[in-house]
Design a protein around this nucleic acid. Structure first.
Lengths: 203, 203
DNA sequence: ACCTGAACACCGTTCAAGT
DNA sequence: ACCTGAACACCGTTCAAGT
């Protein structure tokens, strides 16, 4: 049997990603298999390979959805006149909340390791690039007339640092419980110290 | 057949981990399977489960070896009177080099996600804790008579930040190529700015 | 007590064959 | 052209049976 053509290629792609999204949310990342997607959408597992060349690339498209949601979360214009430090702390908090709420999707972001396949999916890099924009915007306001390269560097440095803290903390590799440490507190100290360092340099 | 008792339980454990280490190094992390270990050591795959309760726990023990090597790399006493900033940059460079040389082992450090099993392996947390010591030592010298909690916090913040930068850069999630950015340069700026921020606070 | 071999319940991916 | 079903080459884990 065959030739159903119930859906266009694009519809089928979305159907597959919808099912994948549900599976990850309900059963976890390790339950995301071609076979399970197949039964969810009523297609043979092989059909998935008409749309996606591999499960890895499929996961890249799933990650794209996750990144879109994260971007929406981060891309909130700060209240006019809001304290700069406060704006950065809020953004970091949004990242923590996102990571917790979307935990399996957020973990998936860091657990695909495609070598050659990666290069074929250039659109994905653009999505990642955009993620730095909200933070860069915040730094730009602060740094009117300053060095643009530095703003761009600082955005990447701070973002990576915050991510490092969140990642290690949420995966149990950063000890917090013992003592009075909190993740928010650590990130607050990072931001304050870094910004204070920037100011003392520009002095 | 059965009852070979060629090796004690402990010998067999080391044999298994030796084989696992070789497999990861020669064929990559995705080739590390119970069956492949079995053929490497001349035992049935089931025998592995006499020593390790699951492949996840086996990987935890493999990670322990990796952490030991990393610790040795980091735990180098700085030359007497060496510049503090330079000491931190050197330590970061050692981490970058380690991550590159031991790439698959280093990646494995962040790709095991054991939930309940984790709690049973407390020794593993201690190993992770120790990793902060060399950096903490560096900060301690700098901060004679200062707040010990801050030193400990700063060590964790800086370590996580450096790790965040290295991880995102090496997995292609931090754009470096375009433009004149280098990972070492970004980390250098992080360290300088953060330390400068600490100094302006203590002023 | 220790180990095997086979079994169970799965995988990703390919592809001849059907419509 | 699109889809299936079966096949290929694997998995982790368990456990009855052997020594």
């Amino acid at each position: 049997m065959a030739r159903r053509k119930d859906h266009t290629r694009e519809e089928l792609g979305n159907l597959i990603l919808d099912a994948a999204w549900r599976i990850v949310g309900e059963e976890g990342l390790s339950s995301l298999t071609a076979r399970r997607i197949g039964t969810h959408i009523g297609y043979a597992p092989g059909s998935i390979y008409n749309v996606f060349p591999s499960m890895n690339v499929l996961m890249l498209h799933l990650n794209a959805r996750t990144i879109d949601i994260l971007f929406e979360r981060l891309n909130v214009p700060p209240p006019k006149g809001e304290d700069f430090i406060m704006g950065m702390k809020k953004m970091a908090s949004r990242y923590i909340n996102f990571a917790q709420e979307y935990r399996p999707y957020w973990m998936a972001l860091f657990s695909v390791d495609l070598g050659e396949e990666r290069r074929a999916e250039v659109w994905y890099d653009d999505k990642i690039q955009n993620l730095f924009n909200p933070l860069e915007g915040l730094l730009q306001v602060k740094n009117q007339g300053g060095n643009a390269k530095n703003v761009s560097d600082d955005a990447r440095i701070l973002w990576s640092s915050v991510h490092g803290l969140v990642y290690l903390a949420l995966t149990g590799k950063l000890p917090l419980k013992d003592g009075s440490r909190t993740l928010e507190g650590m990130i607050g100290r990072l931001i304050e110290t870094y910004v204070s360092g920037l100011e003392s340099k520009n002095r």
